[in-house]
Amino acid sequence: MYTLKKSLGQHFLTDENISRKIVESLPVSEGQQVLEVGPGAGAITKYLLQIPGIHFKAIELDTEKVTYLEKTYPAIQGKLINESILDAALPFEGPFRIIGNFPYNISTQIMFKVLDWRSQVDVVVGMFQKEVAQRIASPHGNKDYGILSVLLQAFYKIEYLFEVHENCFNPPPKVKSAVIRLTRLEQPADIASERKFFVLVKTAFGQRRKQLRNPLKTMFSKELLAEDPIFSKRAEELSVADFAALSHKMI
């Protein structure tokens, strides 16, 4: 069998209906390349392996789980990558989709990895801690809206699909869980550059309770800061399109 490792944030999904529901939330067609992140004990892996005609790989840091998966699901032989998703090189050439019950302790970092890979990753279906899922999906004007919301929504359509009860896991986590889907936008936000946009968003939310002219005073001309009423707003009041437009006016 296998052991649970708290250091890796392991909470294994045991509810078969939820496992199937997660897999069914990922649109796939024949020839599709699919990467599962953190297969653990194989709760959704076994259903992914049953999808005909896809090119499947899974990435798992825990060597013990890799051994368990290979013994339990012979069809996974040669499809496992034994390393951290955060250190991984691109697993496929060409486009691929990502699915997983993401380790909650690194789920935010996984999303930044998705942003790095976005030219090849067009769809992501993932289970997150409920608060993180809400943050990613949150519209502007909401207290949950933040850096991750803006950066991901600039490139992906976010759908908050469903919530998952703690009792669906072993051991039950002390937090609520939710599944979301990201679908890459055909027309992403019109940003000046990735570097400018990321710096702008991170700086704005670094002092989210202050009017924007305070944290952003070094990024724009004094005239623009004084004249444009947008700088009297707080970061959470700006839409993704607002941030994208501002990125073109930075010094």
Rank of each mutant, 00 (worst) to 15 (best):
Met1Lys: 11
Lys5Ile: 05
Lys6Ile: 00
Gly9Thr: 04
His11Ile: 00
Asp15Glu: 07
Asn17Leu: 14
Arg20Glu: 14
Lys21Gln: 11
Ile22Asn: 08
Pro27Met: 11
Ser29Asp: 14
Ser29Trp: 12
Gly31Tyr: 13
Gly31Leu: 06
Gly31Cys: 07
Gly31Lys: 07
Glu36Met: 02
Pro39Gly: 04
Pro39Trp: 01
Gly42Arg: 07
Ala43Thr: 04
Thr45Glu: 03
Thr45Pro: 07
Thr45Ser: 12
Leu49Trp: 08
Leu49Thr: 05
Ile54Asn: 04
His55Asn: 15
Ile59Phe: 09
Glu60Met: 05
Thr63Gln: 13
Lys65Cys: 13
Val66Asp: 03
Thr72Phe: 15
Pro74Cys: 08
Leu80Ala: 02
Leu86Gly: 07
Ala89Arg: 12
Leu90Met: 13
Glu93Asn: 13
Gly94Asp: 15
Gly100Trp: 14
Gly100Thr: 08
Asn101His: 09
Tyr104Thr: 05
Tyr104Gly: 02
Ser107Arg: 15
Gln109Lys: 14
Ile110Glu: 06
Phe112Pro: 02
Arg118Trp: 11
Gly126Ile: 06
Met127Ser: 01
Met127Tyr: 00
Phe128Asn: 00
Gln129Asn: 07
Lys130Gly: 01
Val132Cys: 06
Ala133Asn: 02
Arg135Phe: 04
Gly141Lys: 08
Asn142Ser: 08
Lys143Tyr: 10
Ile147Lys: 12
Leu148Trp: 02
Leu148Cys: 05
Ser149Leu: 04
Val150Glu: 00
Ala154Phe: 10
Tyr156Thr: 01
Ile158Tyr: 07
Glu163Gln: 13
Val164Glu: 04
Asn167Pro: 13
Pro172Gly: 09
Ser177Trp: 04
Val179Ile: 00
Ile180Leu: 03
Ile180Ala: 01
Glu186His: 14
Ser193Pro: 13
Lys196Ala: 14
Leu200Ile: 00
Ala204Trp: 09
Phe205Gly: 04
Gly206Leu: 02
Gln207Trp: 13
Arg208Met: 05
Arg208Glu: 05
Lys210Phe: 08
Arg213Gly: 01
Asn214Lys: 10
Asn214Phe: 10
Thr218Ser: 12
Ala235Gly: 00
Glu236Ala: 00
Glu236Lys: 09
Ser239Phe: 03
Val240Asp: 06
Phe243Asn: 03
Ala244Cys: 02
Ala245Thr: 09
Leu246Tyr: 06
Ser247His: 05
Ser247Gly: 03
